[in-house]
């Protein structure tokens, strides 16, 4: 028995999935480089990165929630609603763009708090609580904006710096066209990784997901931490809202639902378990990029959006099947002890 435990320790089952996801990413990239039309280019790479920002921010936030064993279905509409509210302040009230962005973040964080209170203190199942706030959010955004489309500054206007800072540098600037959004996403990923891996907040996220009752009996104030985790997720949806606005300029009321599923798909492809306790942000980022490589790659082969949806579905199912198989295999090894 001693021996089996020793052997097990040498290969932690954790890294394997990330490795698999990463190799899927590489294989896809190579595949499309060979078979796609003009896939291997700076422009395509920029497109891949551009397609990842807002999904990436949502996916980072919801990774924390999913590690606790929960779910947040309100990501997509929180993104849109917060961007709408910020846009309304900018368009209708004449706020400065900076103040409007702060309002965007605050709105999204408020939705996070709402979710956190419902899940942690009112003990609603996360699925139901966040389904409710998804609908509330979507309606709220439309009501506040009187169902009018909100516009963020675009290139050539007075506030064009907004686009240069959050989306793409000025093509006429010394560095040329550079996807700054990617740097922001990288920064968010690094900060979130420190939070998840090197703070109490992160440890408790895993502890709650692994065994919430054991965590409570260890003196951890599980309700408070859980509420904070949902709040963080809301905050990241707000960031996603800013980057969505920077990329697409117009925000239309009554949209956004469905985006959360893309974020969740990215998390799942990255090996975070829906049953909680296991997961990583590196995996999540890989998962998000697998989806955008797929999107751009299929486009380069002349296949349109519905093909992308189709194949993303296959990848999600495949990733989870593979994970189940891996866990079953690991348990088979353990049996004799």
């Amino acid at each position: 028995m001693e021996n089996t435990t020793l052997n097990k320790a040498k290969k932690p089952s954790f890294g394997l999935h990330k490795l698999l996801a990463l190799s899927v990413l590489v294989i896809l990239y190579v595949f499309f480089s060979i078979f796609g039309n003009n896939f291997l280019s700076w422009d395509t790479l920029i497109n891949i990165l551009n397609a990842s920002y807002y999904i990436g921010f949502m996916a980072i936030g919801v990774t924390f929630v999913i590690i606790t064993g929960g779910i947040d279905l309100s990501l997509g509409t929180t993104l849109m609603t917060s961007a709408l509210i910020g846009g309304a302040a900018y368009n209708m009230l004449g706020w400065s763009i900076a103040a409007s962005l702060v309002l965007t973040i605050l709105t999204a964080t408020a939705f996070g708090i709402l979710n956190g209170v419902m899940v942690a203190y009112l003990k609603l199942p996360p699925f139901i609580a966040t389904l409710g706030s998804q609908m509330v959010g979507m309606g709220f955004g439309a009501i506040v904006t009187k169902v009018m489309t909100m516009r963020y500054p675009t290139v050539g206007t007075e506030d064009a710096w907004f686009k240069y800072v959050f989306y793409m540098t000025d093509p006429n600037s010394p560095i040329g066209r550079f996807p700054v959004g990617a740097l922001w996403l990288l920064a968010a990923f690094l900060v979130a990784s420190v939070l998840l891996n090197q703070t109490r907040f992160g440890r408790y996220t895993y502890a709650i997901g692994s065994n919430r009752e054991a965590a409570r009996l260890s003196g951890i104030k599980t309700r408070r931490w859980l509420a904070l985790i949902y709040t963080l997720c809301g905050f990241f949806s707000g960031l996603a809202g800013i980057f969505f606005a920077a990329a697409y300029t117009t925000i239309i009321p009554g949209t956004g639902n469905g985006l959360e599923l893309l974020a969740i798909a990215g998390v799942v492809i990255g090996g975070t378990s829906m049953s909680g306790g296991v997961g990583s942000l590196t995996g999540t980022m890989i998962g998000v990029f697998v989806m955008s490589v797929l999107k751009q790659g299929l486009m380069s082969m002349g296949l349109q959006g519905h093909w992308q949806t189709f194949f993303t579905g296959i990848v999600v199912i495949g990733a989870v099947l593979l994970d189940n198989y891996r866990i079953a295999a690991a348990n088979r090894v353990k049996k004799p002890t």
Binding site: A207, N211, E213, G277, V278
Partner: peptide, 13 residues
């Protein structure tokens, strides 16, 4: 397993 430990986490955690 139910209340004492988070068995999916490490000894250290």
């Amino acid at each position: 397993k139910g209340f004492g430990l988070a068995v999916g986490l490490s000894v250290r955690d």
